[in-house]
Design a protein around this nucleic acid. Sequence first.
DNA 1: CGTCACTGGATTGTGCACAACTGAATTGTG
DNA 2: CACAATTCAGTTGTGCACAATCCAGTGACG
Lengths: 170, 170
Amino acid sequence: MTTPTRTPDPAGTDADTEPLRTTEDFLRLDQQICFSLNAASRAFGGVYRVVLKDLGLTYPQYLVMLVLWEHGELPVKKLGEHLRLDSGTLSPLLKRLEATGLVRRERSALDERSVVVRPTDEGRALRERALAVPRRIAAATGFDLDEIRELRARLDKLTAALDEADLESG
Amino acid sequence: MTTPTRTPDPAGTDADTEPLRTTEDFLRLDQQICFSLNAASRAFGGVYRVVLKDLGLTYPQYLVMLVLWEHGELPVKKLGEHLRLDSGTLSPLLKRLEATGLVRRERSALDERSVVVRPTDEGRALRERALAVPRRIAAATGFDLDEIRELRARLDKLTAALDEADLESG
DNA sequence: CGTCACTGGATTGTGCACAACTGAATTGTG
DNA sequence: CACAATTCAGTTGTGCACAATCCAGTGACG
């Protein structure tokens, strides 16, 4: 309560004064990181929500369409690998996209276990209107291309590290 | 994905060669950004899920407890301002925290509209065990403190820009 | 052929996020 | 005082994320 922030003083090596207080600072710093990432993700979601409303898409649905626009057609499994999403998330999402007429889902003839998702003509046509989206998003961030690239690189590095972490050590 | 990166060549002003390709690249780049942020957020969530399982907390519940540990007690409104969450998210979340005995909720005597949330003894005791969390998270990221601070600053700047954006211009 | 292990997708259940709405309490104004 | 506007929680409905589970189809083996 009312912790006087006590920045860790990077220059001073006074590890003998109060090392325990540092643990408290870690907890505060930790708060900052998860807060920041969480808030940034939701703020992004909010902007996308507004921009994508015209297209009738949610943010995750837009991500699915981006992948389909780039790859043409994919089984659900491959789609999930691109998006890092499992069938529990994708199945209902794809059904909604099918209900709005943007994609079709059909069992593969070669492997009856697999369901292939492909954009309909309407889904492909939507791409033209979606071309306006990135510029609006970029404008909302106020970042230039180099900043965006830099941030993306750091986030990818972070994601890779988090995926690699085994967490076995308590 | 074997993207040849096609950096927009900031020096060259060859707008005559292929200006259309640039729009396509924007869409691809945009994909990268939202992908990256989305993936990083969920990867973080996954790590927190594992680490927090011992404490019996979800990631957002942990965020709530962090705020309560720091501020002692808060009305729901203030809590929402700290976390950027509205009552539709907080009300059921706080009920679950109350059901597990970590917080208590009671109407303010001064303003009957307001509900004050305060940690119970058990909730305050949980803080001791939570002190181990930040170190495990930091270890999972593989980032040092400077990298974390840098990334946090960029994310906060991004969030602020996204919140400020009016988006009125189509 | 029978059966066993594996794979891909769907389903179920829990929880988060947010828009829209409801309703009670409070405040402002005549 | 009466009454309109505002504030604060809560509720409802929709959609995303993920763990756990189920089941049909597949392929290997005897």
